[in-house]
């Protein structure tokens, strides 16, 4: 419990919170701890801003990729076809 209530966190934990907050999964307390950490840790500040930049870039481009099950389906069809060719 004592670990959970620490205000000053390690860089490792800060990074973890930073990643989580990129996906809106960090709790308020985690965000507060991250902000406090960023006040005095330059390296994490850099990492944090880079991380946010990446999220922004991805959101901006509306990048797309195949749904998992569509991809699997495609793979199945393709493998069938492939076998025909390899005979």
């Amino acid at each position: 419990m004592s670990k959970k209530n620490k205000i000053f966190i390690s860089c490792e934990e800060a990074n973890h919170n930073c990643d989580k907050s990129q996906y809106n999964e960090a709790t308020l307390w985690e965000k507060v701890k991250l902000t406090i950490h960023l006040l005095y840790c330059k390296a994490c500040r850099k990492h944090s801003s880079d991380n946010a930049k990446l999220s922004k870039a991805i959101a901006k481009t509306e990048i797309n990729c195949l749904e998992l099950k569509d991809k699997q389906e495609m793979k199945k069809c393709f493998e069938k076809e492939l076998k025909k060719h390899q005979q």
């Binding site: 990048i63 797309n64 990729c65 195949l66 991809k71 495609m74 393709f78």
Partner: peptide, 12 residues
């Protein structure tokens, strides 16, 4: 390996 490597790129 086509599907694994390129399907998302081609799709995008």
């Amino acid at each position: 390996k086509w599907i694994d490597l390129y399907s998302d790129y081609l799709f995008n």
